[in-house]
């Protein structure tokens, strides 16, 4: 399942923002099927890290490779699904949920061609997986903040990516739908999709995660399994699901039948 090149390779990365290095000498490799969460407080550089990793921000030193290709030369954008951090999915003109999710297919569509059957099917599947299929014809501006976040997630899923990058995707999403999202992401990870999730706190996603990377002042202060992180920092966010601390097979544990049973409480 693992290819030679990591899905995402970040080496000695420094990213300036407004004349200050917000990310400093960060290293991070993410492999197919791996579920990595980047945690950190406000201003820790976690969003800046993923924005540089997706080519949205330039870096001054270090290296970012996507599927083995330096980010500046990367062209296979249909392999990446991105959920930007934004308060709303709406813009100045009304747009339906389906119209916005369909934008997730653009990296796979040729210019001036109508939507193919595969495009429509992927959009429908993405809508269904975030539980918004019955709202597809509604204007996003008329949905709640949490529902709008799910629209943005569906847009990234509709791309059918090999790498999913989600920047605080669960802000405002209710607990029930956070659990739904956890199941959806777990299913993608099980199929070999690499997932990088930027989060403030983990919630229901905690038990799906292989690795936690903690940033503070732009530097990695921790990189390991969630329970090791919990032990090291005595944080409270995953104490309700003890995992084997020395397990390299943490993913097998969390993605096995156990996570589902745990999920339903």
């Amino acid at each position: 399942m693992l290819s030679d090149a990591p899905t995402l390779h970040v080496h000695d990365l420094t990213v300036p923002l407004g004349g200050r290095s917000v990310v400093r000498h960060v290293a991070l490799d993410v492999r197919p099927g791996e579920f990595v969460t980047v945690l950190g407080g406000n201003g820790s550089g976690k969003s800046t890290l993923v924005r540089a990793a997706t080519g949205l921000l330039p870096h001054t030193s270090g290296e970012v490779r996507l599927f083995g290709t330096p980010v500046a030369d990367f062209r296979d954008w249909h392999r990446i699904g991105y959920v930007p951090q934004r308060p709303s999915a709406a813009s100045g003109v009304p747009a339906t949920v389906r119209e916005i999710v369909t934008a997730g297919r653009l990296s796979r569509r040729r210019l001036l061609r109508p939507l193919r059957h595969a495009d429509k099917a992927a959009v429908q599947a993405a809508l269904t997986s975030v539980d918004l299929a019955d709202r597809a014809g509604e204007s996003v501006a008329e949905l709640s903040g949490g529902q709008q976040q799910r629209v943005l997630i569906a847009r990234a899923l509709a791309t059918e990516p090999d790498l999913l990058v989600l920047d605080e995707p669960t802000a405002g999403v209710d607990l029930e739908h956070q659990q739904l999202l956890a199941r959806v992401l777990a299913a993608h990870a099980a199929r070999g999709v690499a997932i990088v999730l930027v989060a403030h706190e983990l919630g229901p996603l905690a038990r799906l995660i292989d690795r936690v990377v903690v940033l503070r002042d732009g530097r990695v202060t921790f990189d390991g399994t969630p329970d090791a992180e919990a032990a090291a920092f005595a944080h409270s966010h995953d104490q309700h699901h003890p995992l084997d601390p020395n397990s390299g097979g943490a993913r097998a544990v969390v993605l096995g039948p156990g996570w589902q049973a745990g999920e339903r409480r």
């Binding site: 954008w77 991105y82 930007p84 934004r86 813009s91 653009l106």
Partner: peptide, 22 residues
Amino acid sequence: LGLAPQLFAVCQDEEHARVSGM
């Protein structure tokens, strides 16, 4: 009208459009 899907995506969400390779 011909580039409506592309122009829509760029005007709706510039960041997402960039990560879509547009």
